[in-house]
Design a protein around this nucleic acid. Structure first.
Length: 208
DNA sequence: CTTTAGATCGGCT
DNA sequence: GCCGATCTAAAGC
């Protein structure tokens, strides 16, 4: 039972382009009902991936078994497993067959913080959800949520009361090697729960 | 404090 | 076989 304004985001929120949705997602709340408990966090960092125009996107190469849900209409979840250890959570956006998605890179823990600590095996608040692999682990997100309906009751996103107060910055994306010039990363300025970025990562993208 | 290397596995270029 | 929309631990300065 989350107190204040918790209006679920409608389907129409998701059927727009990935870049627009990525920006609008900053300050929204990600909710997962896990083991009959509510786990939630305020989204503070996202990245847009725009399908066939975007060599960095998983959907760039066309539809495969792995990325299939990216080609559905916006409003589903795309969860993928990478580097042998990590799940990452994405929101599918745009119209059918566009292959657009937004990677949720960091959230600020809101509800169920004790469970998140247990899931992550640390008590450090700033290390619970400050990265795409970390937040998936903290919120208990895995392959079972692949293609889940984001307007359903298991995993969904809501409005929050104070979204208007957040200042949004943008930058190049992190951890990719193609199409690195695009400013498709959005994050809440000066928020300590944003993923820790080594300046050199951005410089490295820059110089090559 | 900064930097590097290793872990680890599913999907495919 | 190869590589990745990452994270962590441990070595280096």
């Amino acid at each position: 039972m989350n107190g204040i304004k918790c209006k679920k985001l409608p389907k129409s929120f998701y059927t727009r382009g990935a870049v627009t949705v990525a920006k609008d997602l900053i300050g929204k709340v990600l909710v997962h009902k896990f083991d009959n408990k509510i786990l939630s966090g305020i989204i503070v960092e996202t990245e847009a991936y725009t399908g066939k125009n975007d060599p960095a996107s998983h959907s760039f190469i066309g539809k495969t078994k792995r990325n299939g849900v990216m080609f559905e209409e916006g409003g589903k979840s795309y969860v993928y497993f990478t580097y042998g250890n990590h799940y990452c959570f994405n929101v599918v956006t745009g119209k059918k067959d566009r292959g657009n998605a937004v990677l949720i890179r960091a959230v600020q823990p809101l509800e169920g913080i004790d469970i998140m600590r247990k899931n992550r095996g640390t008590d450090d608040m700033y290390n619970l959800t400050s990265g795409p692999g970390k937040l998936a682990q903290a919120l208990g997100i895995d392959k079972k949520l692949y293609a889940a309906d984001l307007t359903g009751d298991i995993i969904y996103l809501t409005e929050s009361g104070n979204a208007g107060k957040i200042r949004i910055s943008r930058s190049k994306r992190i951890g990719i090697s193609k199409n690195t010039e695009k400013l498709y990363r959005f994050f809440a300025k000066d928020n300590p729960y944003v993923s820790k970025v080594n300046i050199k990562t951005l410089l490295k993208n820059d110089s090559r």
